[in-house]
Simulated assay, not measured.
Amino acid sequence: MGDDESAAPVAFRRVGEGDFPVLGRWLAEPHVARWWNHETSMEAVARDFGASARGEEPSEDFLALVDGRAVGLVQRCRIADYAEDFAPIAALTEVPEGAAMLDYLIGAVADTGRGLGPAMVRAATDLVWRDFPDAPCVVIPVVAGNRASWRCLEKAGYRRVAEGEMEPDNPVDPPLHFVYRIDRPDR
């Protein structure tokens, strides 16, 4: 693959229990661990990703694939399905009924800086439009200090609609978050 893979098509497949070792490795990567602040033991990965893999909760986890190779993770849900996420976002900006939310990471540091993040987010947003026909928008809060993440959203066509304090995933971060949104193109 070339240095800029932003033109490479991104495909997705649901995360299964057999993917937990790769998720554990990715979560341990310093560029991921800094922002996700997640336990990386197989028990912790199984605990936190297992229910989604088994279809037992409303969120969905996907491996992002480029040329069949797993390069990242995308999580998707409807914001209203998770009150602990809905209330802090709704305190900063309007969250329309049916709004979706994504979270994402690029797994290996060697895959960062190649345009994969924006391509992955654009492709995941297209999946929201396809699979959630009543979703009017996708809303994503990002800790303000994670410049790479919010720049990724901007490159993927999202716009900043709010900023304010929310509980960060990593307690070392200040609470300032930027909230990004993209509206369904046919509305």
Rank of each mutant, 00 (worst) to 15 (best):
D3I: 10
D3N: 13
E5R: 15
A7H: 09
A8N: 13
A11C: 09
R13H: 06
R13Q: 09
V15G: 06
G16D: 12
G18A: 15
D19K: 02
F20H: 12
P21D: 05
V22F: 03
V22E: 15
R25T: 14
L27N: 14
P30G: 04
V32R: 07
V32F: 04
W35N: 04
W35G: 10
W35P: 09
W36F: 14
N37P: 00
T40R: 03
A46M: 08
R47I: 03
R47N: 12
D48Y: 15
G50E: 09
G50Q: 10
A53L: 05
R54M: 02
R54W: 09
E56K: 07
E56T: 05
E56Y: 11
E57A: 10
P58T: 13
P58V: 08
S59H: 15
F62H: 14
L63Y: 03
G68F: 05
A70H: 10
G72F: 02
R78K: 13
R78N: 10
I79R: 04
I79H: 04
D81W: 14
A87K: 14
P96K: 05
P96W: 02
A100F: 03
L102S: 10
D103V: 01
Y104G: 06
I106R: 01
A110C: 04
D111Y: 03
T112V: 12
R114W: 05
L116H: 07
L116N: 05
P118K: 07
P118I: 03
A119Y: 04
A124Q: 07
T125P: 03
V128E: 07
W129G: 11
D131N: 14
F132Q: 13
P133V: 09
I140Y: 06
P141N: 09
A148N: 12
W150K: 03
L153A: 09
L153Y: 08
E154F: 01
E154M: 08
K155M: 00
A156S: 08
G157C: 08
R159C: 11
M166C: 07
N170P: 03
P171A: 09
V172N: 10
D173R: 00
L176A: 11
L176W: 12
H177R: 10
F178A: 02
Y180E: 05
Y180K: 02
Y180F: 15
D183N: 12
